[in-house]
Each structure stands twice: as C-alpha cells, then as structure tokens.
Design a protein around this nucleic acid. Sequence first.
DNA 1: CTTGGACGATATGTCAGACATAATAACGCG
DNA 2: CGCGTTATTATGTCTGACATATCGTCCAAG
Lengths: 271, 271
Amino acid sequence: MTDMPSSRRNGRSPPAAVDGAGRIADELGSAIVAGLYQPHELVPGELALCRRFGASRTVVREAFKLLSAKGLIASRKRSGTRARPREAWHMLDADVLAWRLRNGQAEPKFLFDLLHVRAVVEPAAAAMAARSHTPETLKSIEAAFAEMERAAHDPVLFADPDIRFHKAILAATDNDVMVAFGALTEAALGVFVRAASRHAGAPAPSVPLHRAVLAAIQRRDAEGAHAAMMALLSRTARNVERNVGPAPGRNKGRDNGPSRRGSRRSAKPSK
Amino acid sequence: MTDMPSSRRNGRSPPAAVDGAGRIADELGSAIVAGLYQPHELVPGELALCRRFGASRTVVREAFKLLSAKGLIASRKRSGTRARPREAWHMLDADVLAWRLRNGQAEPKFLFDLLHVRAVVEPAAAAMAARSHTPETLKSIEAAFAEMERAAHDPVLFADPDIRFHKAILAATDNDVMVAFGALTEAALGVFVRAASRHAGAPAPSVPLHRAVLAAIQRRDAEGAHAAMMALLSRTARNVERNVGPAPGRNKGRDNGPSRRGSRRSAKPSK
DNA sequence: CTTGGACGATATGTCAGACATAATAACGCG
DNA sequence: CGCGTTATTATGTCTGACATATCGTCCAAG
C-alpha cells in the first residue's frame, strides 16, 4: 500500500518483507509500537542495525526515513535515533495500525479505542454515502455485499468482501479525507475477523445488518444508514467484548464507547 | 513533527527546509498533491532530481522514502518512480495536509471535506472528553481557553491557543486514535485562521462558543459538549463559506455537510 | 503479417568507504 | 570547583561502483 511492508493485502500477515528498507522498517517499527523502546531515547544505531540485518548503512537509513515519516522515530546528530512517544505516532497510518495490531494479542484498550473511533466515523460516512453516492460508487458497495452473501458461511472468505464493503462506503462519501479512513477500517476488520474466526462460527448473522446499511444507502436515507451502521458496529463491539473481555475504562473505572443501544441520529445536519 | 518539513509549528508556513531529504520531500510532495503529476506515472528520476537540487542520490532516495511512506509515490525497478493516485495518499498525515493546504488557494472542495470530517470527529471527541477527562487533561483545556480569552482581540495571536484548545480536547478523550486527529485539526485551523485574519476582524465572537464547549466538558455533560462543539464548527463553516464561496456539492448539485442547525445529540451511547 | 524469444538499455536497489557536522562527554586549566 | 577547550561519536552527505528487474526493440520462426 505504501510500497512498504503493509503489502500484506488482506488477512495474511506473515509475508511482508519486500525490499531491504521495508523489511527493516517492518521489524523495527513493530518493535517500537510494541513498546520495546521507552518513550524517548535510543533505538539501536545505524551501524548496529547494519550488522543485525546484514544490510548496508544506506538501506538502514532509508528504513529510518520510512519510520520517521510515520512519527515513530527522530534522529539528531550526535545523540542518535530515539523512539518517539506514543502521542507522536501517526496512529491512522496503515502500517502503524498493522504493527500495533499484529503483536500477538494487541492490548484490549487499543481495540476499543479503534472501535470507538469507527463508531464515530463509519455511521457518519454511511450517512454521507446515502446522500452522495453515484451509480458507480453504489455499484461497488452492492458488489461487495453480494460477495459477502456468497461467503456468509466461511469466516475467512468473508473478511475480504467485508473490508471492501466498508471501504466502498467510505469512497461513496465523495470526501477525500473520509476515504483515508479506509486504512483504519481495514486494519480493524482484519483483527476482528481473525478473532471471530477463532471463537465464533460463521459470519452469517452479520449479513442482515450489512443489508440494512446497504438498503438505507440505496434509498438515500441518511439517518437510516447512520443507525444501521451503528447497529452493525454495536454487534462487533459485543463480539469483541466476548472475546477479549469487557471494555477497559480510563485508568480504571469509567466507561464510554459504542455498545448496545441503536441510537438513531444523522451524522450532520443537511444544510 | 515527523522530523520532516512539517516542523512548521503553528501558522508560519515558509521556514520549512531542514535537512536535505526533508527539503526535497517538501518540494516534491507539495508538487504532487498540487496535481503537477498525473495520477499515475513518472515523477523526475533520481539523477534528474540530484541535478535539480544539487544533492547526492543518497539524499534524493531518502526523500523518496519519506514520500512513499506517506503514500504519495511508488517506485519500481526499471519503470521509475510514479505519483500515486489521490485515493492512496495518507490524507490524515500532517505533511500531506499541510502541502495540500499550502498551495496558494487550496481547492474549496477540500476545505469543506476537512470541515465535514471535523464536524464528525470533534463533537464526538468533545463528548468523550466530557466523560473521560482527568484533572490534568482538563487543566490543559482550561489553560488554552484562558489564553484564547487573552488573545481575543488579535487573530494571529489567537491561532495558537485555539489549536491547543482543540488538541487538548482530543487528548482528554484518553483515546490514542483520537489524539491522532490533532494533525487534521491543526492543519485545518491553520488555514481557517489565516483566512479569517485576512477577511474578518477579531476572533472575539468565537470565544463564547469555545467557553460553552469547555463548560459542558467541565460538568461532564457529554451531550452538551457535543452540541456546543457542533455549534462552534457551524460558525467556522459559515465563515469559510463567506470567504471561499458556498459549499460545492458532489460533481455539482447535491449538498451535504455541517452548516447552520445546532442539532443536539451525543456522539455515542454510553453503554 | 503476426507471434515469440533473445538482448540490450535504463532506472531503481544495494553496497563500501570516505569525509562533514554537530552535540555530547571528557579533559585540563585557571 | 567552575568553565572553556578538546575528543569522541552518531548521524548527515557524497562518491562511484555493481546488481537487478523490466521495458523496448529487433530478429527469426510460424
């Protein structure tokens, strides 16, 4: 996707490894988001990594540039290269998301953070799509849904059209910035379906919920699309809770986020 | 911010130019998002850029890695390096946003796309902040607001605390992914206040709207915070419309997005 | 005339070694 | 003991070379 490690297209995680710089960035980036390096200060130096990866300094430095462009590291002349604090990471970048979700079991807190953001963005996107879709963009949503129906029995076959469905809705908003959330949705769905395929059975139950979203969009019902998408995400939230335990609150205690309750309301007032 | 060009902190745009790779990435990236290169195919080759910037191939290649990490270009062996289509750009990256907004007059459509996304994300963030804020995070919101009041007479002094106010709210959500929207908010506010300082007068009128957001957060009123933030953004939308003309619809016609109407409703059901 | 394979040209990918630069750490002097 | 000077060290930049994957071209066979 970026020319980089994230060339892992759908659910497949292991392949990765493209060119030298991508490989190194993949491994180092993964380690950083996993918390192997304290908020500030000092990842291994360039020449240390040269030895460790059997690569030239050129390649290591290119890997550093890839990571620095994603907010994971920063270099200064004599002090060396340091891992940046979490709030500097480009959390909406496809690779950062993938790295953070790939680590054995990503921290549950992060899974819920993702869900909460999806619960904000995707219903709004569905509403916008209901208002703005064209014959072409609508067709790609319908095509993805049709394939979901066909794969309703198999959790792994289901993942790909599911992702396409949600991305097609984002594309139908006719909003460049909304489209960029595809990375988030793709990453999140990747984990969720992986988890679902381990625990739950066939994804068939979610088909009617998707159908409701599509139907609302087809009839240009923005409020309905918003509500239907919210319902769909609430189901996902319940599944995740079943699998990784209940949602963690702030430092402990309070709770917020998407869960039951449909809650109908449009994303934004139409002028 | 990324170690890269975007070290332009607040509103100042020109400085930029840090290290060689950053400088080249800045210029090339800016050109790409400005549409100087057709959706696919062929930015200048490495050695051509070497001549053009008086730099070595090493540095040019590092610049390429910076840009490829942001989804702007992709290289293949013999064919050369090509500009990627808009839908591949990491539109939520601080640098990409800055480049896209810096070009003389950014396309109005993009300004409204940004506004629509802010109208989805920030009210929800305000609601989450109302639920999740701690003494520390609340204090940083209050501090930013206090400074806004003090600078209420000067559009340019106003910009910095304004940005801090919105980012502090995102931080108070206690949601890693929400925090990442700070780049979007910062970029958008940068342009809006720049535009406002040209056309409108003092930013004083927006102070009460900000105060309403703060007050709702203080009393942990999620719905109120949502509504207040939406009202604030609606005002911004009106200002932008006044300055750059009315919101463009799809390929022409339809309209969607934030505008008048307060519309009160919370970002998400509280379990 | 079309089809297929061989071959050369070309742009990116990788490497090794050198020097420049800045910031830190160590040293030594007053 | 404080402070300026010097050494050290990791990143930044440059150079020139070779490796590798394609894309175009051309020629020969069908």
